[in-house]
């Protein structure tokens, strides 16, 4: 038999990679966050608590993340269910589904900017021509619509990410379960709620977790499409941190904001994991 110690050897590559590339910079960042112009101290954190712009960016980030996430999970699940059915040419369709995820985000963001242009954009043109809107809409010009446009662009791009994770999850559900349920007289809807959803839960959790983290750190899309405007209404935490480092040349304060953002995400992750465990125990 192998020794217990030997089993831990399997973790070494990950430990090296994460230690070197992730945790070392993060520790440096933590150290930096206590460095201010007047020496070491909590100055950066004290400043953050009075920073209205930080509060606004955190709010914007939360709104963006929640809306994107909800839409992506619903659409991603629907997409995964569709491409899980077997039909001819399924392979090609699966590849096509992934294309939005594969296009470079900064470039697609430029494309979306034109799609949402007021006078000559397709989004405005179609609604106007079909009579759904009485006049052309300047999508990126008002806070609410600008946020909506960003969410749409983000959902379009990242739904495949969710779909493919869920698809792999669907593939690992044994067919025999469905057959047994069918024999018991369960209809498709019932089967979905009795079998698919519960068995898919770990994968849904994965998708929510990683997409949530990505959405919280969104940068490219917003930087290109609105720069955080109008009136700062779409500025997210990543944009703000980027500006503090590279615009205001104040890495110490940026580091403090990074740690704060991290603690918030950590708290959310902990809550999700507690909720998940409770559900698990109930089930």
């Amino acid at each position: 038999m192998d020794s217990v110690l030997k089993r831990y050897l399997f973790l070494i590559p990950v430990a090296i990679l994460l230690g070197l590339i992730v945790f070392y910079p993060v520790l440096r960042c933590a150290g930096l966050s206590f460095t201010t112009h007047d020496g070491l101290g909590f100055g950066n954190y004290a400043r953050a608590f009075g920073d209205a712009r930080l509060a606004a960016t955190l709010w914007n980030t939360t709104v963006f993340t929640v809306f994107s996430l909800v839409l992506e999970i619903i659409l991603g699940l629907a997409l995964a269910l569709c491409i899980n059915v077997s039909f001819r040419g399924r392979g090609i369709v699966r590849a096509i589904v992934l294309i939005p995820w594969a296009l470079p985000p900064a470039v697609m963001a430029l494309g979306w900017t034109w799609i949402f242009n007021d006078v000559y954009g397709v989004a405005s043109d179609i609604l106007y021509r079909t009579g759904l809107a009485s006049e052309k809409i300047a999508w990126l010009a008002t806070p609410g619509k600008a946020m909506l446009s960003l969410v749409i662009a983000d959902v379009w791009k990242t739904t495949p990410f969710v779909a493919i994770i869920l698809l792999a999850g669907l593939q690992s559900i044994p067919k025999s379960l469905y057959e047994a349920a069918a024999i018991d007289g369960a209809g498709p809807v019932r089967r979905f709620f009795m079998i698919t959803l519960p068995l898919l839960r770990p994968h849904l959790l994965l998708a929510v977790l990683f997409r949530g983290i990505q959405a919280f750190g969104v940068f490219d899309l917003i930087w290109v499409m609105t720069r955080g405007g109008p009136a700062g209404s779409t500025e997210t935490i990543s944009l703000y941190i980027y500006r503090i480092i590279y615009g205001y040349l104040n890495p110490g304060y940026a580091a403090a904001l990074t740690i704060i953002a991290f603690l918030i995400l950590l708290a959310v992750a902990v809550i999700i994991s507690i909720l998940n465990r409770r559900q698990h125990e109930l089930a």
Partner: peptide, 12 residues
């Protein structure tokens, strides 16, 4: 101005 002028940069 066009309504969306508040979203325009040089290129638009």
């Amino acid at each position: 101005c066009p309504m969306g002028v508040t979203t325009y940069n040089e290129e638009e």
